[in-house]
Nucleic acid binder design. Sequence first.
RNA 1: GCGAGAGUGGCGGAACGGUAGACGCAGUCGACUCAAAAUCGACCGACCUUCGGUCAUGGGGGUUCGAAUCCCCCCUCUCGCACCA
Length: 874
Amino acid sequence: MNESVPTDPTSTDAPRYDFRAAEPAWQRAWAERGSFHVDDVPVGGKPKYYVLEMFPYPSGKIHMGHVRNYTLGDVVARYKRARGFEVLHPMGWDAFGLPAENAARERGIHPAKWTWDNIAAMRAELQRMGLSLDWDREFATCDPAYYGHQQKLFLDFLTAGLVERKESWVNWDPVDGTVLANEQVIDGRGWRSGALVEKKQLSQWFLRITAYAPDLLSALDTLDRWPERVRLMQSNWIGRSEGALLSFTLTQQEGDIAKAEVFTTRPDTLFGMSFLALAPEHPLAAAVAARDPGAAAFIADCRRMGTSEAVIETAEKLGYDTGLTVQHPFIEGATFPVWIANFVLMEYGTGAIFGCPAHDQRDLDFARKYGLHVTPVVLPAAGDPASFAVGNEAYVGAGTIFNSGLLDGLEVDAAKRSIIAELEKRRIGTGVVNWRLRDWGVSRQRYWGCPIPVIHCDACGIVPVPADQLPVRLPDDVTFDKPGNPLDHHPTWKYVACPKCGAAARRETDTFDTFVDSSWYFARYCSPKVDVPVDRAAVDHWMPVDQYIGGIEHAILHLLYSRFFTRAMKQTGHIAVEEPFAGLFTQGMVNHESYRATDGTWLYPDEIEKRPDGTASHRETGAPVVVGRVEAMSKSKRNTVDPGAIIDRYGADTARWFILSDNPPERDMEWTEAGVAGAYRFTQRVFRLVEGCDEMAAAMPSEFGAAGRDLRHVAHRTIAAVSDALESFSFNVAVARLYEFVNAIADADRANDRAGLPWARREAMEILARLISPMMPHLAEQIYRRLHPAAAALVVDLPWPQPDPALVAAETVTIAVQVMGKLRATIAVQPNAAADTVIAAAESEPNVMRLLAGKHVVKRVHVPNRIVNFVLAG
RNA sequence: GCGAGAGUGGCGGAACGGUAGACGCAGUCGACUCAAAAUCGACCGACCUUCGGUCAUGGGGGUUCGAAUCCCCCCUCUCGCACCA
């Protein structure tokens, strides 16, 4: 494996492209010229283009996912730049987060040191990729110079009524003393401590994303450069549903509770009611539990069960009859039992439902289990009202309402409207729109995050930190020797005077969810040094991001939060746009084969030797190796490839080229050693071609032979084809066209008719240098310099080449000749030749003649420049 | 369960309804070499009676002069959501 790569580039006779010398040299040249620098508010009138890739978390090393992400972005940035746009292409660090605190707890390294060291290491790795980034704009979200402005934004949101403090149910780890995200609860236990997680009500800060729910949903239609499925995922997440809110009166008051409010999307089925069910966390359930140990035990069971996906999948519907009953709002004297049910969610609607088993599958399962009655009220078109019954499958289709008093005879939709009007008339309910989206809880009991800038005063309540006291900085001297939030344990940090009354008060010790940090960084990049969150002129110029690129895993949370934040910033006067990302591209993952020794231990790709038949053995011991599935690179399976090692061995251009060439960028790709080696061979091949290039003749020759003419056609068509491919994110197709182009240049070198060929060949190399420059920027510069040893210009400063329309047009076209739709011959004709001429030429082809002999041709189809088809009788 | 996307050679993939398999990887043969690597050249879907044919884009129907592409049904895989009332 990999013998094709010389350890010493000078070890063979052929001229070698020495990427180890060339790549850093060109990177220095770009940096010295400030090639990728742009101003906050540019003058000069070039159209702007803002390219952004999702900024990395500084884990310590870049991985292949980063390489793919930043290569894709760099192709776009360099291409748009050549196309005459002023391109903003910044980079920074999503630098707060739990891993830094884990490093502190496990290894005693301060989170700040751990983070900044990682940033330094990763910056160096990224710089080796030769990305066209404006490094002057770099920042890290853990820098007070960033998070101080975030605190200001929060205070502005607070003033604007976009922030709330409210009680909410959270996953609480009693051992670690912290709130856990749903993803951090595994089988009901804390992922770190292993302790049973409790549901706890806690006072938390919330950003009122629900205030924008209608707009966040409807504006999805305007995001026409977003992938359809991302818009769909957001739409589902926001989850609009129309229905009714109605309240049921208890026949006997429970404590001071007299009514239960219910949300339903099927108010038309109200007469099919059989029971009322409460979520275990519902206040009425709690009131019952206070006097009924059976109810209390049932609620405790539900709480322990949790709501993880695996549990829901298998859990059967369980209920507890409270003994309470409610009156039916329309059926005089009818009452229904009130149950507590494990399948009712407190988070959705009102936490209470009315059960109509005939027309809801869950309600039906529940009713069958507990012997509750099932009354159908929607009759299918072909149904007989006297005999229609529901078995074990609820009927959820269209139909006519029956058994329903005033609704009888109405269709489902009409019945909904009618019953809502009636509810509103009697003041027991209203038609409402309900949203699945919840407000965004941003409080985290952690040290390594942005402090929430408020102060708790016993006298004044919650007092915002005055703007002139921002940033609220994290203290450096913290310890991680006990569980819980180090900010809370700090001896002095939280004790401050109330800004209002001066009395002793306490700082908020919670910090922001790190998703807050990434919800506005794209705006900060426009003016990263100013002493306000954003400079209006700068964001007005640069925003929105024209092309955003990142992983599909952020389809909902990060992108939705950013859309919300941008709206909130607009409302508070920081920005003019409300959609942050005009174009979104979601890339696929980078996968790799996995390998295991016969004892089951995972092996790194470096440790194994592949054989041509696809089997493998251990490189050192020769022991057999099991070649496993191609799957996402992960440390535990050791199927990772280190980008740094690849760049050492093959160079950045090779890595970039391979990652672009393998497949369409939105799909998952497989990283293969053979594929990288192939890309490396291509870089050397291109370099050899320029070595064989003659000096440019001063003027274009007046005559070209066939080879020169053909090459010029290919060159100019390649410009057109590569441009099209780059515009449509078909980078693998752009690569394929460039392979063809290089093959054509090599073919021309073997041609006999050499008139004008040296000139044409050199023109081809010039075009090649520019066309590969978005993908392989270093090699492009190297070729260009070889062609123009004295030139001061760099490819990076040159405009994108324009194809000559006369050369893009064909001299002859190949027409496919079909008989009865099957290909029988091809003929070469002049472009746009007359139908008669083409059909005559086609009919004179021997093979066609043979097939047409003695047959009656009923139709001759001619599609100009494409095809002739003879349709025979019978 | 609901929703979305995808099924094309050994592999990744290409193909405005118009020559299916571009281009790359892997492979075969040859040249160069003492040899190998690199490089260069040729071949490379299956099958047959091989200057010519037949069959082939998950399966089955349909529309069309012509379908990988459009329509209907089915199968498989991937992803997302999910006791959402």
